[in-house]
Amino acid sequence: MSTKTLAGRANAPAVPKKGAWQTFLRYKALYLMFLPVAAYYIIFHFIPMAGVVIAFQDYSPSSGISGSDWIGFENFQYFFQSVYFFRLLRNTLMISVYQLLFKFPASIILALLINEVKNMWFKRSVQTITYLPHFISAVIAAGIILDFFSFDGIINSAITAMGFQPQMFMIDPNNFYPIYVGSEIWQHCGWDSIIYLSALSAIDPTLYEAAVVDGAKRWSKIWHITLPGILPVIIIMLILQIGSMLSVGYEKILLLYNPSLYETADVISTYVYRKGLLENDYSFSTAIGLFNSVVNFGLLVGANYVSRKLGDNSLW
């Protein structure tokens, strides 16, 4: 025993290497299982990242990456100097912030509500009904929303039936944030609640039993047991949400907006669509995509850091 330790000390640098190798041998089955996953990420997620270099090029598909001219930060400069830069950034952030304020808690509240329902039949029906809108494609969802809010739509019919003047909802920029965020809640609130429901089911029932013995009522059970029980999930979901602040999906906005709504509805991704895809400016759209990713990455790391400092929940 002691000789072994001494021999180990004699050639100290070799020890960790030997240790790592031993660990590897010991868990070789696990490493083998991990191999395809690593290969997948390297081949399909890391190697394609090299393509971001076209953000610094005047890329043309016929010349390829090697043949296109390098133009440095010109694409970025152009985006930052664009007359619309601040408006795009503001709209993107505002929509994200509103989603964090309203959509994010909505799914938690829905999960808590569903969790309190004791009638299984009613509970399952509510769950199914709230999941359904999630499976509607963006095209159809936008069609439904436009039908509701158009000048001769259902909402205006109701308004006129009550004796008021019909409103032009979809041309007033002030209405876009509420309509968009509201429709997002309608579509995804049920689906997003699944993860909280699964976390809720993991809470130890004996905690509730003990609380009842101590005389806790429904509200104090939610406040002192349920919410702390799912807090780690909430924090993790929040961090992930913050990490995608600049990635407001363009599909639905593109289908919903019209020029008179640009003031509040034009976001970075829709601008990239008009500019990059409709005009084939690949480099420019890649540059904006890279900018988005860098900011998102920063936000994610920042949120994680703050969360780790404040409590003990974090992604890593």
Binding site: A199, G229, P232, I236
Partner: peptide
């Protein structure tokens, strides 16, 4: 107990 909760929470996240 706490570790178990965290693990199930992480699993839930991973799953989705």
């Amino acid at each position: 107990m706490k570790a178990k909760r965290a693990i199930s929470a992480m699993l839930a996240v991973l799953l989705s």
